[in-house]
Design a protein around this nucleic acid. Structure first.
Lengths: 225, 225
DNA sequence: GCATTCATTTGCGTATGCATTAAAAAACGC
DNA sequence: GCGTTTTTTAATGCATACGCAAATGAATGC
């Protein structure tokens, strides 16, 4: 997970990383506007790399560039979450299927198994942050095993949007006890080479997660994140 | 399909449109490199809007910016087509399902029906171009009816990549006779409000299309488009 | 000849400046 | 006072300039 090629990162790339991180952490709050020149000053560079970075983040759906109003950090509304979860459901389920078709060895699946164990531990320890990290690692790895670069990109893109929602909802939501049962079932199906099982089980898992999340959003009247 | 608000389009937007169009038409051939300054001169503007446009097209997967080598127009290899069709299969099938769930009226589905008729006519007239246009319209409209903005965006993005492949393969491939049967079946399922049927039928349709295309690519040893 | 070092070119990353024009503020008429 | 026009302000879109590093080519040593 680290960029161990430590070549002198360009300003544009740094701007992308920093802005993204600030948005995900909520330091740049949803709905707020920021002038290019402000951001430039904040990050200690000129407007040019800021503009380029903003353009990229715009195409990733994190913000919107509005002439004369600055860049606006986008909300994630419940309707957005519905859209996003639907996409994740479909694409990850396919990835699970493909992973099962690929007949990976246990060694290949070691990392995936590890994330499941981490989730168990995190739940024991009631450490929600750790659970969330491991959960994300599980899903990322699953998609990677599905061997479709474009799906990886798409999923990672929409995940950036989910992450903000998680920031708010993580501590509201009930302990995800059922969740790891699903993960194990998906894992087992992949290991055994049962594509349909892997697919359907993961789909069920995602639909469940979607239902839980939307329920929370409704109950707490969270109309934007 | 038209931008009828004829406000003075920015250079960056024009650059995006023109470069995209040149790539889709093959005027900028896959695998070729182009200096930012060349493109700037070609389109009669400075490097700044060209860079911004290239950045956007890069995130859409049409090209790649490589320091000192210029922007490279990307190939679409058979492996890419596999990835793309897998994505289209999943997301469009979901759209079909959702469209069926939405219980659209016949009036709402008029446009979709129209595209099917156009395909019939085009097949009668053996007009492959017209068929391809209508086919694309069908798929686009189907996704629109699925009411998921993000899916619309993703599908339109990968479609740009498919379009280039179609440019080459359209005249090699057999007349898509079976195809419109699928379209009608999907349409009927949507009209009747049968989500599972719509979904499965469309999925079958896409899997079939994928098989046909990959078969052609292999038979003709088309390793990149 | 061939490798190696040095000089030169050149394309990019970024800063900067400016014209444009939308928005805000001010002036004006009623 | 309030709606309308004019003026002012200021953020953007874009052109341009420039330093740097990479690639290219020349020169040198062996």
């Amino acid at each position: 997970m680290k960029d161990h090629g430590d070549k002198p990162l360009s300003n544009t790339q740094r701007a992308v990383q920093q802005l993204r991180s600030m948005i995900l952490k909520g330091e740049l709050a949803a709905g707020t506007d920021h002038l290019e020149s402000e951001l430039a000053e904040t990050l200690g560079m000129s407007r040019t790399p800021i503009r380029e970075a903003a353009l990229m983040l715009e195409s990733k759906g994190l913000l919107e560039m509005r002439p004369r109003k600055g860049v606006r950090i986008l909300h994630v509304a419940p309707e957005d979450m519905r859209e996003i979860y639907d996409i994740l459901t479909e694409l990850e389920s396919l990835a699970a299927q493909r992973a099962a078709e690929a007949r990976y060895s246990s060694a290949d699946l070691k990392f995936l198994a590890g994330t499941i164990d981490q989730m168990d531990e995190a739940i024991q320890a009631k450490d929600l942050e750790a659970w969330a990290d491991a959960d994300e690692a599980f899903h990322t790895e699953l998609v990677r095993l599905g061997k479709n670069r474009r799906i990886e990109d798409i999923v990672s893109m929409v995940n950036d949007q989910v992450r903000r929602a998680r920031l708010t909802t993580l501590f509201i939501r009930p302990l995800p006890l059922q969740s790891n049962e699903d993960h194990r079932a998906v894992y087992t199906a992949i290991e055994r080479g049962e594509p349909d099982v892997a697919r359907e089980r993961h789909k069920k898992h995602r639909l469940q997660a979607k239902a839980v999340l939307l329920d929370i959003l409704e109950k707490h009247r969270l109309s934007s994140l």
